[in-house]
Nucleic acid binder design. Structure first.
Length: 114
DNA sequence: TTCTTGACTCGCA
DNA sequence: CTGCGAGCCAAGA
């Protein structure tokens, strides 16, 4: 799965789309799942290119390792990302996901051990 | 083909 | 504990 080979981006998008509603994950987790734990930045880069994906990518569910909305500034509005998360019952406080550890969705576990 | 960039992460001062 | 620097991989020019 997620072995499109068409590009690292496609894999990232595919994983991002698998993130359940009301859950969040980190760039590093996705990168690691793809086999490149050091490509966390690449994941963010993929999110930037997520608009190229045919299907909508829940980039708002992807945050940094501490659950902070590091990429909120890249959304249409400077506050859109937070609104999208709150729309999924995800509490956001100070640009940071509340109870991030509890809402954390690790593809390595959720998908890897599936 | 080489250099630059980037929504990250870890380590050290 | 906070702040700064280097490392990391992949894609675009």
């Amino acid at each position: 799965m997620a072995e499109k080979k068409d590009g690292f981006f496609q894999d990232v998008w595919d994983v991002a789309k698998l993130i359940p509603k009301g859950r969040v994950t980190s760039y590093g987790a996705i990168a690691k799942y793809l086999g490149s734990p050091g490509a966390a930045r690449m994941v963010g880069w993929a999110m930037n290119a997520s608009h190229a994906s045919e299907k909508p990518v829940p980039a708002q569910r992807v945050v940094n390792r501490i659950g902070m909305l590091s990429g909120k500034h890249h959304f249409e509005g400077h506050n859109l990302m937070q609104e999208l998360l709150e729309n999924e019952d995800i509490k956001v406080r100070n640009n940071q996901v509340v109870e991030f550890e509890k809402l954390f969705w690790d593809p390595l576990i959720e998908l890897g051990l599936d």
